[in-house]
Each structure stands twice: as C-alpha cells, then as structure tokens.
Design a protein around this nucleic acid. Structure first.
Lengths: 350, 350
DNA sequence: GTGGGGGGTGAGAGCGCTCTCACGTCATGG
DNA sequence: CCATGACGTGAGAGCGCTCTCACCCCCCAC
C-alpha cells in the first residue's frame, strides 16, 4: 500500500514553525476573528512554506461537517447517463456546490444491494445532505434518509402519502401539469382531433402530473382518458418507440402524440418514420424537457421547456441553505419548495 | 443548522451495552480475528440493537483510508454527459467500486477555478486514489496528483513527456492505432479511393494514435497526410458536423470519411445528408467507439468497437489493487497498464 | 494608584476510532 | 509442578483538528 500521506504537515507543525499555538493557526486557516494582522500574515506564510493542507477527517470528526453532499439517483447508470435531463440537472448542481466548496458524491441505484449500501452510507454521516432524484412511489430510501434526519431535497415532488402536507419537505419541481396542458392545447389549436399520450412511469409524480395535464386539456377527468390513446413508456427512447408502435396498432387514426419527455418523443418519431407516417403532416408530435434530443430530432421537436439546469442549481441551493452553508441574507425566509414554470417551444414536429 | 447526528451511538456505547471493551467491538465490527464466537455474537446483537454505524471520519483519521476514490474528468459537464463514452466508462467504474464498498466522487473540470479546488482536494487526502480522464497534453493536474503520491490510474495513455517510460504509471487504453488502421483498411477494401479523416483533439493520445492508424493504412508517415483530407474535430457531434462541412468544401471528391469517434461520425452524417450526399453510396463513413450514437445513426454506423465499460472496470480494479484494496491472489503480479483490443463492426454506413 | 474591562493568545480537553501492547487464562510439555 | 506459549481481552495512547476557557497585558476610568 502506498502511504503517501503521513508526511503531511499538521497544524502543530505550522504552529511551531510560525511560533504560535495550534489554536491561532486554526483561527487563521478558518478565517476566524481575533488575530492580529501581523500574526495572521506570519501564519499564512508558514502555511504556504510547509504546504499545509488541513486534514478533513480530523476536522469532520469535531465539526460534524463533511463538506460533501450526495446526489442519489434511483436509476441505473445506463439511464442516468443516457438522459440529458440528469446531465443538465447535475450540471446545475455541480456548479452551485462548487461555488460553496462542497463536494458532490454521485450514487446511482442500480442493483438491489446498492440500496442497503447507500442507505448505510447516508445514515453514516458521510455527507451533510442529499439530493434525491427520480424516486419511484415505493422507494424506501427517502424515508430512511429523512428518518435519520439527513437534510434532503428532492428533484420532483415526492409522491408518497402525506408528502404533500409535510412542511419540512423540500423539493424543486416544475409545473408539469400546466406544461402538459399547454402542449396538448397547442395540438388541439393546430386542428388535431385525436391526441394520444405516451406516459412516463406513473409512480413518479412528474409523469402522473403530465398525464393529468393531458386530461385537463381534453376536458376530461383523470380516469376518463381513452385507453386506446394512452401508452406506457419509461422515459427512454426505446420505450417511446415501443409505445408509439402500440398506439399505432390500436389507434391507427391518431393524428397527434404528446410524449412525456423528449427522449420518448424521439423514439416515437423513429417508429413513425419506420411506419411511413410523416411528421407533422400525418401525425404531430410534442415532447417535454427541451433538451438536446428535441433540437436534434428529425424534425426538430415542439416541446415544453423547463429550466433544468436552473432547477438543479436551486436544489443545491435549497440544500445548502437547509444545512446552513449558504450565505443567508439577514431576513431570509426558511427554504421552501420551488415550482418553476414550463413554457411551450414550437418547432417543426407539430 | 440541523444537528441530526450527535445522538448516534459510539463504539463506547456498544461496548458497555455488550459488556466488553471498545477494542473488542472494533474487532468484531471490522471482522478482525481473535474474538470468541460467543462474544462476537453478543456484540453483533448490541450493534444491531443500538443501530450502531461507525463514524467514518474517526476511522479515516487513524487508518488514513477514506474509502472513496475520485473520478476526475477534464471536460465540462456538458461534454461528460453528452458523450456516452464517459457514461459507459463510469458505469464500469461504478460497478467495480461498489463491489468493493468504495465511494465514487465525481469531479468535472469546467472552469479555471475548478483546477485549484480539485488539486487542493486531491492532495488533501480526501480520497484514496484518483481515476483521471480525458487529459489534454498541457494539463497540470496529473502531475500535481502524482507528485503528492496519490495513487492514480489514467483513462487513455498519458501523453506528457516521459510518461512512456515511467514504470509506475498506470493506465487503461485501447489499441487506438490498430483500430483506426482496421477502419481505414476496411474502407480501402470497399474500393474507396479518397479517405478523409476527422480527428479528435490531438493533444489527447487517443486522437493522435487514431490519426497515426489512419496514416498507417494509407502507407504514409505521420506527417505526410494530405491536409485537405484532414479536419479537426473535438469529439462532439457539432464538431463533426463542422469538420465534415470543411472537408466537403476543400475536397468535394472524397468518397469516405473516418471519424475519431461515433459522435463526430453522426455529425458528419448530418452534414452529408444536408448536402445531399448519400451514405454509403456517395460517401462511406466509419466511426469509433461503437456506442449508442453508432447504432442509432441513420444509417447505422460502421465503427470500431472497444469494450468501454470493461475498460472502466479495469481502471477501477487497477486502482484498487494499487491502493491495496482489491483481493490479491497470492502470487499476483503488481498492477500494470492495460491495452485492450479494438475490433471493426461493419454496419450500413460503409 | 488601583480596579475593571476587552482583545489577543495559549493550554487542554475531547471528537470516535484503531492499534499496540500488556495482561490474564488455560492447555501443553518437560 | 512450574515454565512456556497461544489465545482472548482490555487499557490507553494518539490520529489532527476545533473550541472553550483561562490567562495575560494594556488601556482606561475612577
């Protein structure tokens, strides 16, 4: 084993080098008050000269702060990296965290054993907080985390019973219902009569809310949707492909599709092309997210834009505030859930 | 601030609950030898009952082991997440690490200030080792890391002077030169006379090696390539698009293109389609990587396959062995660089 | 001249753990 | 019957840091 550490200078070393006490060095290093500028300068010089870097473990041991937060994504790596939604979100998160010198620990839940491991990890105090994504209805993890008191912020409104009423629950969501409603209304305005929908997994509130928005636009109740116009996808392009194929089989007469995200919409596009349907002439398609797949699709997708990167940033910010790391303005309100607006972007597919 | 920890039981608590000493509990928790099974059982019971979880900071403080490794990618998030190459690689890494209960810290270098922060972080002993990717020729980071003695494994053969000769340098690479040679030879066998190439950034050895392979197949020296058949890309689809456009402008007569990765090849495809060239009839295209963009392209890409996920896994394994965490067979050789083979996959674009 | 602050500094306890070493106990062999 | 050693266990030091508290010194008010 490499024991490359061990020779690293400690606070003590810096202290004796500078001719002061450990406490003073600590104060200087952490920017504490009550040290003469002259001494401060001397210490800084010693730190520089010895190449001192604080030992995080020791610091964490006493402060109970790790300076790291976990990003937990309840999806296999294959999905996490294939879906630009996570990419963008992570980008916003990463940026915000790095601005506060906080590390990002990425944990993806792929296999069953990962649950135990990550649950243990989170409750072991390795991180100061967690950002949780893509939680499905029956996921035991958030409850576990919350129970240990780990500060957490959710990506998307959590769907478990009672979540609605918990004033301490923090999440960042977008107006999924409103966005979906706009999308479908847009299709109707373009004269489409038979609008089908490709859902995301309905154990996620985002997918459910988008389905509700679809029903809203159609002026029907949540359970009155025509089953032959509703197909189930899984937020992947392949899922969209399959769902579109099923829809065409069942309802050959449809003239529009609203897909729960851009990836499924691209899949749908692929199937439509394979079946010789022209888009938008024969069938109009609308996606959701407005990420790369939308712009790059053939034809470019009409879709619903949400500020994904911004949402990631907000999640991080909420968490940092909850942890007490972000600078609070004096009269700052306690952190609260955030719901961002969604706007329709019209391109060539509708 | 939430002080949700603090009430967590310590080793001491478990010890007194089980009626043994701290040392014994520690032995049981860490699976050490020399404890009677009866006592062992009693301690396990107490651990269970009190819900004891070891404090990692304390443990790290004395063992100098953090149980985490950093994955450093010298690319902006936008690229990291857009390129399935990283995704796959990360997948392999993540799997291998989680099998050894080791955490993955993802660090992406986007802005200049990130360099200082990450350099500090790596040398501060927060992690037991680092996996480094996508290093460009002039990157100061690996040197920094290596200098502190941080165990590191590189993704792709490092390109700085002297790297070749350093016996301690660990990396996982693929036979880029051979793969490229195969790709271009294949184009020639199909009767293509004028084969152009779209490079990745030449300050990365992978891109450089692929260019060399191209020259090999053409039977020319590294610097004898016809400049009007060589275009510079950046491993992104947009870059491929632009490079293809330039090539067509300069060499309208070309009948084949070898692109340094699938993403650039897809971009090239897009440009060719926009310019009305048929693939493969007018122009044949070959990519590199054999990841999703290849299979999903229109037409599906002939490309060079490398086992990207496997390479990620190997990197992690090498690192764990270097750190001394992986189970070593008795007569295990010290870890050495790995170069994996590359094989041509023929699809419809050639 | 003396008492009382207050700012700057140091001493020291302790965070929770691991690990070395010493100790006690019991079987073994001369 | 005692020396020997193996084995199981506990005591205690210490990892590097933060933070409280006590201390000292200087300045000011009375």
């Amino acid at each position: 084993m490499h024991t490359f550490r061990g020779s690293r200078p400690t606070l003590e070393a810096v202290a004796s080098h500078a001719g002061v006490s450990r406490a003073t060095v600590s104060r200087v290093v952490n920017g504490g008050p009550g040290v003469r500028e002259e001494v401060r300068e001397k210490v800084r010089h010693s730190v520089e000269e010895l190449g001192y870097v604080p030992n995080n473990a020791a610091r964490t041991l006493v402060t109970r702060r790790t300076g790291a937060v976990a990003v937990v994504i309840a999806e296999p790596e294959s999905r996490v990296f294939a879906d630009p939604f996570f990419a963008q979100q992570l980008r916003g998160i990463s940026r915000e965290l790095s601005d506060h010198d906080t590390q990002l620990l990425l944990m993806m839940l792929e296999r069953q054993k990962d649950y135990a491991r990550i649950g243990r990890y989170l409750s072991a105090g390795h991180v100061d907080g967690a950002l949780m994504f893509s939680l499905h209805g029956d996921d035991p993890l958030p409850a576990m985390a919350l129970q240990t008191g780990l500060p957490a912020v959710f990506g998307g409104r959590p769907g478990w019973p009672g979540a609605e009423d918990d004033p301490d629950l923090l999440y960042v969501d977008t107006d999924n219902r409103g966005g979906a409603r706009q999308a479908v209304a847009h299709l109707q305005e373009r004269g489409r009569r038979t609008v089908a929908v490709i859902n995301g997994p309905l154990d996620q509130t985002s997918a459910l809310d988008r389905l509700h928005g679809y029903c809203d636009a159609l002026g029907i109740g949540a359970h009155e949707a025509d089953p032959s116009l509703v197909a189930q996808g899984d937020f992947t392009a392949e899922g969209g492909e399959r769902a579109m194929a099923r829809l065409l089989d069942v309802s050959p007469g449809l003239d529009a599709v609203f897909a729960g995200n851009d990836l499924m919409a691209s899949g749908a596009l692929r199937t439509l092309r394979a079946r010789g349907r022209r888009v938008p002439d024969d069938v109009a398609v609308v996606g959701y997210d407005d990420l790369e797949p939308a712009a790059w699709a053939e034809p470019p997708l009409t879709t619903v834009r949400q500020d994904v990167e911004g949402m990631g940033g907000m999640m991080a910010e909420l968490l940092l505030r909850r942890i007490g790391l972000a600078e609070e303005s004096v009269d700052a309100a306690p952190p609260r859930p955030v719901v961002t607006p969604a706007t329709l972007v019209v391109r060539d597919s509708s």
